[in-house]
Amino acid sequence: MPLIKLFLDICFFKKGPQDVPASGLLLALAILAYSVVGVVLLGLERDWRGAVVEAAVEGLMLFAFIYTALHLRRKIPRLQKTATALYACDALISAAAIPFLAWLSATPEVKGVYFFLMFLMLWHLAVVGHILRHALAISFFFGVGLAFGYIIVSYQVMMALFDRVT
């Protein structure tokens, strides 16, 4: 439970990636949580095999982004903690979306759900910006901009790789 509280504190901007314990096991668990949540989310709209492949590609792209950003800022020693924070916080926020996306897939005319999902997307963007701010020693707004840029690029890559219609 203390670890879940830590990642919730990061999601609520009370702590940062520097507060995450340096642990290969914790990073592996965060990646596992990220992957499971990703497969469940993607599985709501496609077959499970495709969902597993897409979740794996998304996870690898996120790691490549984190590594590249830290490398360019010469902050590679922060990789493990930053990756753990990003994967774990993404898993927490994305898990909150699962019941609402399932509801939408069953009843698409429920308009209020769209507002909640938009809130989750904006919150996720802010959390990633917060983590990047601490990891890269940049401003919060630059971190959010970097996160937004990553989301746009990763979305385009995923659409191209998996031939998905927007």
Rank of each mutant, 00 (worst) to 15 (best):
W123L: 02
W123K: 01
H71S: 14
A56S: 15
G43H: 12
Q18A: 07
L6P: 03
V157A: 11
D90I: 09
I152K: 00
A33Q: 06
L125M: 12
T82M: 05
Y150V: 06
A64T: 14
L136R: 01
L3C: 00
G16N: 11
L32K: 01
L136I: 02
R78D: 12
A30H: 05
L101H: 13
G145K: 03
L120C: 11
I10L: 04
I66N: 05
Q80E: 14
P17W: 00
G43E: 10
F13E: 00
S23D: 09
P108W: 01
S154P: 03
D90H: 11
Y87D: 12
V144E: 02
A106R: 11
V52M: 14
T82P: 11
I138K: 00
A69W: 02
L104S: 03
Q18K: 05
Q80R: 13
K14R: 13
D47G: 13
L122D: 02
P17A: 01
L101A: 07
H71N: 13
V52I: 15
L25V: 14
V36N: 08
L62Y: 12
R164L: 15
K5R: 11
W103K: 08
H124E: 10
G59Q: 06
P77M: 02
L104T: 06
L32N: 05
V144K: 00
W103Y: 14
A83L: 14
A160K: 07
A102M: 13
L146H: 04
W123Y: 03
D90P: 03
E45H: 14
V113D: 02
T166R: 09
F119N: 03
R133M: 00
F7K: 01
P77A: 03
I31W: 13
E109L: 10
M1R: 09
F63H: 08
V57L: 14
A30I: 11
I98N: 09
